[in-house]
Structures are given as C-alpha cells and as structure tokens.
Amino acid sequence: MNKLIRRNLIRAAIILAIQVILLKRIDITFSGFNYIHFTIYPVILALLPYKTDKTLMVLIGFVMGFFVDMFYDSPGVHAATSTFTAYLRYYILALIAPTDGYGKDGLTSYGYGFVWFVSYMGILLFIHLLALYSIEAFSFVYLNEILLRSIFSFIASFFLLVLAQLIFNPRY
C-alpha cells in the first residue's frame, strides 16, 4: 500500500514538473494557428488507484490544479478543471467498466488492456480539455475557439500520453 502511494506521488511530481517546466514553454504557432497546447497532467488523476476515496480524489484534483495554476498564472482555472475531472472520474470508470469489473488497482493498459486504457484516457482527457478551455474563455461566445483548442490539444497530448504508456507500460 505504501508502495502504491509512493509510486503515485513520484509519478505526480515528475509529470507536474514536465508539465510546468517543459510543456508550458512549448508554443506551436504558425500563421495564426495557435491551438496546440500540451496538457498531460490529467493522467495523474487517471492513474490513481481505483479504490481511492471519492472525496480524496476531488481534493487531490483541486490541489494539483492549484499547483499548475501557480505556474500558469491563472489562479483557479486549472483548479476548477481538475476538481471537475477528478469528480467525474468515478462516473467515467462506471461507464466503461470491463465485463469482469475492476479487480486490479492499477488503471493502466498493463492491467486492463490497451483498448480499454485508450478509451478511458481519451474520455477523461477530452473532458478535461473541453472544461479547461471553456473555463479559460469563460464565455460560450468563443465556442469555435474552445472546440478547436480542445480538439488539437487533445490530439497532441493524447499522443504523448499513449506513447508514454507504451514505453513505460506501468503496472500501477
């Protein structure tokens, strides 16, 4: 159990570091096309053990989002989004539950198969990005922009996450 917590903490630290130090600086812009932003930290929420308490999930989501916010200079935006995603994770899991239920703690492709992981991660990430850019724009007047950003950022970030999953193939 301790190993599980330690593993998650280290993973969170590494991913957050990559997010706020490296990915934040990557700015893909060509001729007014500025819709790609890498956002990989939702994977921390996704990979938390299945048995994590719901309340604790929500708290973790908030703290994590707030941490990201401090680096992105946008107090509250990522916090609101992460809290939202953390709360929704339970329902996403219920939605795509495997036929024999969740027997193992690690919600990875190692435990439940690549296809399951891709759909789980895809739904979670896309919801996160859509919420993120909606809250960032703070108005549905910019619906086009919100959708474009969500879709392109989703493709880029999702690619990174699946690649990492394939390379490291973690058990937990």
């Binding site: 719901k54 708290l59 946008s74 107090p75 509250g76 935006v77 916090a79 809290t83 339970y90 960032e136």
Partner: peptide, 25 residues
C-alpha cells in the same frame, strides 16, 4: 455525499479565484 459537497465547495472556491484574480474572466 461528501465527495459531491467537497466538489461543489472546491469548484466555488476555484471560480472565486478565477473571477477575482484573472483580468479577462
């Protein structure tokens, strides 16, 4: 429903932060 209450509370807190500390929002 503690998860729900905590969720609502934290979302309110986040939106409070958003509205108070972000200029465009």
């Amino acid at each position: 429903y503690s998860a729900l209450f905590v969720f609502i509370l934290l979302e309110c807190l986040s939106f409070y932060l958003i509205v108070n500390y972000n200029r465009s929002q």
